[in-house]
Amino acid sequence: MPKFYLHIVYADRIVPDLEGISFTDLEEAKQEARDSLPDLVAQALLSRRPDIPLAINICNANGDAVASVATDAAIPQLSPAAPPASGGGPGNGR
């Protein structure tokens, strides 16, 4: 099984994964990153740390970046709301 390294990205630094984890494939590594990000954000908020992880970069055993999972992709509630659809309501210019 290939080994991947999940590096945690903050605004001012990257915390490297020095050990790595063996996964079946890249998709399994990306799922682990998606599953880990909500917990990392919760830990930061509960401890009142100002640094919230922005993403997890996934590297292969050669150190090549092969994927990145952004926090807002892992926690959809953090994504900006879509603008309301225009329609026949008030203020639509009709």
Rank of each mutant, 00 (worst) to 15 (best):
D25A: 04
D39F: 11
I21Q: 11
S86I: 11
G20M: 10
L37M: 05
R49P: 00
M1K: 07
R34D: 03
A29Y: 06
I56W: 01
I21N: 07
R34A: 13
P2E: 06
L18N: 06
D35Y: 06
R13P: 02
S68M: 05
A61Q: 12
E27P: 00
E19N: 10
A70N: 12
S36C: 05
K3V: 14
D17T: 09
G87L: 04
R49G: 14
S68W: 00
G20N: 11
N92K: 02
G93I: 04
E32T: 08
A55Q: 03
D64H: 12
A29Q: 03
A85S: 13
Y10L: 14
A74T: 01
H7E: 05
N57Q: 14
E19S: 14
L26F: 02
G91D: 10
P80V: 05
L37V: 02
G88M: 10
K3E: 10
A44C: 12
A73M: 13
L18W: 04
P53T: 06
T71D: 04
I21M: 09
A65C: 03
P50W: 05
M1T: 11
E28R: 12
S22R: 09
V69M: 07
H7L: 03
S47G: 05
G89C: 01
S36F: 02
G93L: 11
P38H: 07
Q43P: 00
A74S: 05
G88N: 15
S68P: 00
E28P: 00
L18E: 15
D25T: 03
N57T: 13
A44P: 06
H7V: 01
A74K: 00
S86A: 13
G20D: 08
S22W: 07
A33N: 02
P53D: 09
I58V: 06
D12F: 09
L6F: 06
A61P: 00
V15M: 08
D35T: 12
P80R: 09
A29F: 01
E32Q: 11
G88V: 07
N92I: 00
I56E: 00
A65Q: 15
I56C: 01
L45M: 11
V66M: 10
S22T: 09
L6E: 02
R48V: 07
L6D: 01
F4G: 01
Y5C: 02
D12Q: 10
G91R: 13
A73Q: 14
Y10A: 06
L26Q: 09
L18F: 05
A29D: 03
V15C: 04
D72E: 14
A85Q: 12
N92S: 14
G20R: 09
P50S: 13
D17C: 09
C59Y: 12
T71A: 15
